[in-house]
């Protein structure tokens, strides 16, 4: 089935679990409890060729995440999904709390400092990569790295894809 909507991958399907069509799930997302709210999902090798499924049960166990779909009721069918991606449509993506943004929303935003245009965000380095805080990488030669802290970020407009920063002279040298 081809669906003309933006698809967002939440993870990949792992090996089958049990004989009733359950399977393990390798999540890309940090907040795993979000998976408990899943209802309608799409599974496929890529976001263009997907098939719709209804979620019957999601369990967060010590061994990992186990998912049961209403349409998959035997081990062989679950095995066939192994390695494919699990997607949700744009409407089903959970809105982040205020002041938090998805990386895919931030990438591509045009950054301005006063009247000066700095360029577009091309990458985001996360804190868990070893940095002191999250860092936005802005295109250019050399690249401009701005820490994501309230006193440097003035305004973020995701709809207009615009970000205004302040007091960043020290990072431009």
């Amino acid at each position: 089935m081809i669906i003309n909507k933006n698809m967002y991958a939440l993870g990949t399907i792992g090996r089958s679990y049990g004989v009733r069509g359950q399977f393990k799930f390798k999540s890309f997302i940090e907040y795993k409890r979000r998976l408990l709210t899943l209802k309608k999902i799409y599974i496929g090798p890529d976001d263009k060729t997907v098939k719709q499924y209804e979620v019957y049960d999601v369990r967060l166990t010590r061994d990992g995440i186990i998912i049961k779909l209403r349409e998959i009721n035997d081990r062989e069918s679950a095995k066939a999904l192994n390695g494919q991606y699990l997607f949700v449509t744009e409407e089903d993506v959970v809105k982040p709390p205020e002041g938090h943004y998805y990386i895919h929303d931030i990438i591509g935003c045009a950054v301005t400092f006063g009247r000066k245009k700095l360029g577009k965000v091309i990458d985001v380095h996360r804190k868990h990569e070893g940095f002191a805080q999250d860092i936005w990488v802005i295109e250019g030669k050399p690249e401009i790295w701005i820490p994501v802290l309230p006193h440097y970020i003035k305004k973020v407009d995701i709809k207009k894809k615009k970000i205004a920063v302040q007091d960043v002279e020290g990072f431009l040298e």
């Binding site: 940095f131 002191a132 805080q133 860092i135 050399p142 690249e143 790295w145 701005i146 820490p147 802290l149 990072f171």
Partner: peptide, 8 residues
């Protein structure tokens, strides 16, 4: 390679 921003 480059200067990495660090807020202490």
């Amino acid at each position: 390679n480059k200067f990495i921003p660090i807020y202490v």
